[in-house]
Design a binder for these strands. Structure first.
Lengths: 225, 225
DNA sequence: CGCTTTCTTACGGAAGGCTTACGAGATTGG
DNA sequence: CCAATCTCGTAAGCCTTCCGTAAGAAAGCG
């Protein structure tokens, strides 16, 4: 369903949380310290971040600030029990919710559901992605290339948006299918190929030699500004 | 948009809530105890009150009673977590909604939007939207196209106003239904289609090729000036 | 040069949107 | 207080658009 980044230095805790989130159909990535969290988030945007406040290398509040600098992604904080200061700090930093330790994994899963329900229907794909030649407006679902508007279908737009939200990052066909169609999609991943073809037809000057939506042979596709 | 009185003795919490409400365009006043709340409300009526139950000098329930004695202003209660008695007491006292601590500021902002939508069906949306060809008067609920007045029904106007208040932004049918009919509307979202049809019949030069109320295939509708 | 991966094309089906018509409820005017 | 009118929501049929699949061609890799 959604991509979730879990930042938690205690492996046991992380593992339990992961299991519960996967059971809800989410795509979970785990990192064990703050520095890795920031790097991972830069590499691949998550739909939601679960963030322990006490972390090695770079603590939770710093991570939160760094993430908030570039994204409105929902953040759920894990804080020590009843530490009022932690709580206030978390809220101030822009966390969307927080859970006090010790917590039950079920509670975390429930909060995740609640936060996602609150944040995904309205927000979500509404960021504006701007590059030299291409502008992609998530709210309008419109794309312009060198000022000229281009009409894309739903799938085409979703694929482009997904690729462009992480420029130069390579996404496999399977990953794209899972992200846009959902894990329960029965069909073939080759359908992505066709959509990419049609997408190139619309946005590339020379579709046979694509400049923006590149093929990485044996791996997948990536967007280059 | 609306004037909101926040009654919360914890300055940090109050500040965070304030920031989120201001972001939604509201005019926020903060007081830190119950006595001041009553005085402030008497001095200047608010459109909505956010009221902590635990307060110095005069507790939340007393404040609620005093306010209710003179006004039907919507009140959102902040109560301790899971304290069922607080909740019941709050509802009994005439609160319109309540949020349990610890809460996320986004949730509070969402509740505020929901309550305002519920309680101020006509007010609040009194902005004048002016474009080259179309003028939409939220206060008078009138529309003119190239100087000519056009008579719209309630639904038609609401849809047009909602779309036009965010030009070029795409709204899904479900979103429109939720915003105008309320979250608890049971009916079909396709009813929006019909209203849009009738709306176009009135405001578009060529309803078959709409210029202002555009269809974004697979997504929803958007207004273009 | 053979094998795998990707490209390209065409087509049938499915989904989404449009249009129309109708009955129930609300509103207005006599 | 009743009748005429208006508005709203639903349903059904039609039409357009888009999507997924399959199959052969081309391209990249070892």
């Amino acid at each position: 369903m959604s991509k979730i980044l879990v930042v938690e230095d205690e492996p046991m805790v992380a593992e339990v949380v992961e299991r519960y989130l996967r059971r809800d159909g989410h795509d979970v990535t785990i990192v064990f310290d703050g520095q890795s969290a920031v790097e991972q988030f830069a590499r691949e945007r998550a739909d939601l971040v679960i963030l322990d406040l006490m972390l090695p290398r770079l603590d939770g509040s710093a991570v939160c600030r760094k993430i908030r600098a570039t994204s409105d992604v929902p953040i759920i904080m894990l804080t020590a029990r009843g530490d009022e200061r932690d709580r206030l700090q978390g809220l101030e930093l822009g966390a969307d919710d927080y859970v006090t330790k010790p917590f039950s994994p079920r509670e975390v899963a429930a909060r995740v559901r609640a936060v996602l329900r609150r944040t995904t229907p309205v927000e979500g794909r509404e960021r504006m992605l701007e590059f030299d030649r291409i502008q992609i407006d998530g709210a309008r679902r419109s794309v312009t290339i060198e000022g000229r508007p281009v009409a894309l279908t739903v799938r085409e737009f979703d694929i482009l948006y997904h690729l462009a939200s992480n420029p130069s990052h390579v996404f496999s066909r399977d990953h794209i299918v899972a992200s846009l169609w959902g894990d329960d999609f029965v069909g073939d991943a080759s359908t992505v190929t066709v959509h990419v073809r049609r997408l190139r037809e619309k946005i590339e000057a020379d579709p046979a030699r694509p400049r923006h939506v590149r093929t990485v042979w044996g791996v997948g596709y990536c967007f280059e500004p």
